[in-house]
């Protein structure tokens, strides 16, 4: 997988809005393969963390009830244009990914 996270962080009137799209199957473990009838094993992101200047701004805990290729948006105060944020995720199989973005 190349970089499966797209992040955009916009600064407007003192508030930074972070929007991200992560490429991930988000299998809940309840779906069945239509051909074989076998249950597709659970494979979903459990945790998404956003840090800014070593501080944890937001930590999302997820189940397999979040849609495939998850979208997340949130807002925080205190940052400025040009600052970097880091977004990282970990799934139930221990796989992970992360990326950084500049606040614009």
């Amino acid at each position: 997988m190349a970089n499966p996270i797209k992040v955009r962080a916009r600064f407007k009137e003192d508030v930074t809005e972070v929007k991200a799209l992560i490429s991930h199957p988000m299998e809940s473990g309840r779906r069945k393969d239509k051909k074989t009838g076998e249950t597709i094993p659970a494979h979903f992101i459990q945790e998404v963390v956003c840090t800014w200047k070593e501080k944890e701004v937001m930590k999302a805990l997820w189940s397999g009830g979040i849609s495939k290729n998850p979208y997340i948006a949130f807002r925080f105060k205190g940052a400025d244009k040009g600052d970097a944020i880091r977004l990282s995720w970990t799934d139930n199989k221990g796989e992970s990914g992360s990326t950084t973005a500049e606040i614009k």
């Binding site: 309840r30 930590k59 997340i72 105060k77």
Partner: peptide, 24 residues
């Protein structure tokens, strides 16, 4: 849903009361 809890977003210092996502 079979397991009703979808997500929980822990907000750190400075975070505003706003989250948006897509659920099943």
């Amino acid at each position: 849903n079979h397991t009703p809890l979808i997500a929980s977003f822990n907000l750190g210092e400075g975070a505003l009361g706003f989250v948006s996502t897509r659920i099943k």
